[in-house]
Structure formats: C-alpha cells, structure tokens
Design a protein around this nucleic acid. Structure first.
Length: 267
DNA sequence: AATGGGACCTGCGCGC
DNA sequence: TGCGCGCAGGTCCCAT
C-alpha cells in the first residue's frame, strides 16, 4: 500500500494521537503479521509500555517504547493503522490504549510485517535501504545513475537504490520529467537527471501536503481518504488523454509493476 | 551483477 | 445473481 508520503502522513497523525499513551492491551486476531518475536512474547512485552516517539524510515514506521524496545511496522500493500479503532473485520492486531480507545492494525492481504526489536537500525530491511530523495544532493543522484544500465522506472522502485518511492510516485515523477519509464538510467542527460530528481521530490512533497493518495486501501489514521489521487497526472489513466499533449496514456508492465506513461511526450 | 518471475494473501471490479 | 479472471500501492527469494 503506502509509499513515503502515505507513511509520513500516518506518522504525523500518530504523533498527535498516541504519543505518551500507554498500550494497555494487545489483542492478536491474526498472528501471521507478527514476524518477531513470537505472538505470545509480542503481546507480553508490549502490554504496559508507553509510546515515547514515532519515527519513519522510508516506508517503515517505528514506535519507540518506554521499555527501550521498538515496534517496527511495514504496511506493505494493504496495511492500515486506524485511530480511534473501529473494529474492522480486517483488524489483525488491536492495541488498547490508556485513553480507552483502540489503535487498530488492519491488513487485508496479510503481507504487512510487525516486529518488536531491541534496535530498529539493525533490521535487515533498514540496513539495505538506499537514501531517501530528501537526503540526497542532486550531484549524488546524478552520480548514482551514471553506471546503471537498468530501466529508470524499476530503478526508482528499488529500495536499496533509493528509498521511499513506490509505484504511483515513480510513474508520476517520470511523467512530470517527460522521461520514458523504459530508458536505461545511464542514458539520461544531466538535464534530465536534474529534472527527474526535482520532480520526484516535488511529487512526494505535494503528496504529503495532501495527506497521501487513496488508491485501493490507503487511508489516513482517522480512516479518511488522502486527497492526492485526484492530482495524479498519469497513474491509473490508461486510455485517457495525456494532460499535456492529448495522446492516449499507455499501460505496460515493467518488472511486474503496472507502468503508465504518455508515449508521445515521455521520451 | 542484474533481471525476471513467482510467492506471500485477500478482496474487488469487470465481463460474461 | 454468480462465477472466473485479472488486477492491486511492496518486498523477498530463487533461477537464469
């Protein structure tokens, strides 16, 4: 489900909603989503602790807890955090809080991963992450693309290369930079690399400002939809006219992911 | 080394 | 109304 802007939205809302509150009860409705430690330990070690801070690293949410541990949540495709909880049939873990309300963790497809760990920085996923676009200089970005023969779009989705961008925003950034998703990364001119880098950051920033894109399952912490989907210029617009040149938007599959682009103005 | 396909799962929308 | 199919925002693993 969510990419960097969606996870950032949830992070900011969690800070307002649950910071300083105690987790009084953990109800595990489907233990499949708990990757470590065991479901029993997970419950035992979380009950009674206070939420001290909320962090985000790429698409990973991290709760810093008063017992020195960290709860790391990756929402993957369909994970949701909802507060106050509503007891959806897709709720997999329900955290009862000291304010009498629940924080629900929902996940239709059961891809999401919850981990209670001593040190989030040691997580394999974290160790493999490339830099977020906001932590990169344009020069470094250009240098990173220089030796890459891979198609640019799959490269933008490679979290070990650059982290935080997912399928929607990769499509959007390439459209805005007028670059074909199939171009080998090292074939981009300096100007194109600069433009792509700028558009990628701007797309992510705009998406954060609108509290994310509600496509399929993503919602804000309150359960409300995010507002950015109506500003998408190319994602999910197959068969519709390009907003720049009116040519029909095409959909292809690149490394297994739906890829939308304008065959005329993205070159 | 890099790429591609399948796996992990469930639910939804579509065409028939 | 019901069924089967294709599709889904992410990541990991394995084969080539």
């Amino acid at each position: 489900m969510p990419e960097l802007p969606e996870v950032e939205t949830i992070k900011r809302e969690l800070e307002k909603a649950v910071l300083g509150k105690k987790i009084t009860k953990v109800s595990i409705l489907n233990p499949k989503v708990i990757k470590e430690p065991s479901a029993e330990k997970f419950k035992k070690e979380l009950e009674g602790v206070t939420i001290k801070s909320i962090l985000r690293k790429a698409k990973l949410l991290i709760f810093e807890l008063s017992n020195g541990k960290f709860l790391a949540i990756h929402l993957k495709m369909t994970g949701q955090l909802i507060y106050p909880g509503t007891g959806s049939k897709l709720a997999r873990v329900i955290f009862g809080l000291s304010d009498g309300k629940n924080l629900d963790f929902n996940d239709g497809r059961l891809f999401a991963e919850l981990r209670l760990v001593d040190d989030w920085q040691k997580l394999k996923f974290i160790q493999g992450l490339g830099p977020e676009p906001f932590d990169l200089s344009v020069d470094k970005f250009k240098e990173m693309l220089a030796n890459k023969k891979t198609k640019i779009k799959p490269l933008l989705l490679d979290q070990t290369f650059i982290s935080g961008c997912g399928n929607i925003y990769a499509n959007e950034a390439l459209f805005r930079a007028k670059i074909s998703p199939e171009r080998p990364a090292n074939s981009l001119s300096d100007k194109e690399k600069e433009l792509l880098f700028k558009e990628l950051k701007e797309t992510l920033k705009e998406a954060i400002a609108h509290k994310g894109s509600s496509v399929d399952d993503y919602v804000q912490l309150s359960g409300e939809a995010g507002g950015y989907a109506k500003y998408h210029k190319v994602y999910d617009r197959e068969g519709k006219p390009c907003l720049r040149c009116k040519k029909t938007i095409k959909r292809i599959t690149l490394s297994g992911r739906g890829t939308y682009f304008c065959p005329q103005c993205q070159i």
